[in-house]
Design a protein around this nucleic acid. Structure first.
Lengths: 216, 216
DNA sequence: AAATAATTCACCATAATTGGTGATTTCTGT
DNA sequence: ACAGAAATCACCAATTATGGTGAATTATTT
């Protein structure tokens, strides 16, 4: 038997969800609230297996509620009910520690499946939401080479990549089969182009760019 | 009518998927291949609406195939067929630009739904895969300090953060109001704990960890 | 063919980092 | 109160990095 608690300030939603669970054998709605005042206490008292949470309530939002639960080390899975697919709110929920993201408009049969999913450690979400998450994920991962951004030559880029790996001038010289002084030359020009004056700055700038697409 | 092309080196899978589409009215399997040689040409010729791609084939992998398609600006949605839920391969696929991620073991009815999903711009994935993506997503946003991972003390972490910013020992000493030699001491212990022996390595390790959640 | 950029190398001097050893004081948990 | 960790500082020696200047050779582009 999966115990469920619901937070949603829309009475209609609450009613229809209540109705739903009355027809499901292995799930039970143990409590439902129209706001998230004292959410931590309420959840502790009800001790549910899954929490359904409206993403956007008047007063304290569902996002903030999740944050509060997680900050108290309450790791009960939370499914966010999104009124429409608001990407920013979903991302905020993800960072707050919510588990699943579904549309209120989703039909109720799906909701039952989603509850089983989070109960099994999954993160159910609609494909459109997933697409948005992936788009942002890819943006974060995309690793632009500084070559393009700073007009580094091929060789300069090679040297920079080795500096990033923590190699010394001497090691780079060996690896590229050029003299120490040539490495020195390349590094000088790299520093000029990157507007830095130490390896650490160069590495930092390179990796920051690679990771976040910006150096600021 | 949704035109579908399949790449999978497992003959059984190919057969069962072929069988599936013969029973679906509005979908048609226009071609299927057991490898991804000349994937770009094959896709251009078949001009499908959706591509089904085994994530891990002998020779050129499905991941590489997606990369090649995307590099030629072919943006036809791709659903990756994952043998088991290998997180790293899924992440690689995401970065390569694939759209959906489903288990080969998923029953075929689901596959039909997933094809409709990607065809509508969504990114269908199993809840478990979604969970893993979200976990990594949160890690990216949360930028963990290496303090926890390497047992750095408070002061050591401060020093490391300044090294990451490209500061010299002297600058760090000024900023923290301690002597140059103290900075030197901290750096020594940091190197020992991070198992490195230069700033660039330390910076690299720190930023890699911050971003990927791993240093390998 | 000429101009420009890229790659290569060298010498010099100064500054910064790295590693070793040792030691004192302050903080923290028991 | 005591043990152990954290933070502080110092001296020494060797290595490495940085910045300046200059220059030759090879590619690339116009």
């Amino acid at each position: 038997m999966i115990k469920i608690i619901l937070f949603d300030d829309n009475r209609n939603i609450c009613d229809s969800i209540g109705l739903l669970f009355s027809t499901i054998d292995d799930m039970i709605l143990v409590a439902s609230y129209h706001n998230v005042e004292d959410v931590v206490d309420k959840v502790r008292k009800a001790n549910p297996d899954v929490i359904l949470m409206d993403i956007d309530m008047s007063g304290i939002t569902g996002i903030e509620a999740v944050r509060r639960l997680r900050s108290k080390n309450i790791s009960i899975p939370v499914i966010m009910l999104t009124g429409f697919e608001d990407a920013d709110k979903v991302f905020a929920s993800i960072c707050a520690g919510a588990n699943g993201y579904i549309l209120k408009s989703a039909n109720m049969n799906e909701l039952v499946g989603h509850i089983k999913d989070v109960h099994n450690g999954g993160a159910p979400m609609t494909p459109i939401i997933a697409r948005k998450v992936l788009d942002r994920f890819v943006k974060l991962q995309a690793a632009p080479h500084p070559e393009e951004d700073f007009n580094l030559s091929k060789r300069e880029d090679q040297v920079l990549q080795l500096l990033v790996k923590g190699k010394s001038y001497k090691m780079i010289a060996e690896e590229l089969n050029i003299s120490y002084e040539t490495v020195h030359s390349h590094v000088r020009r790299i520093y000029q182009k990157l507007q830095v004056n130490s390896v650490s700055e160069a590495v930092s700038k390179t990796l920051s760019l690679r990771f976040w697409g910006t150096t600021s």
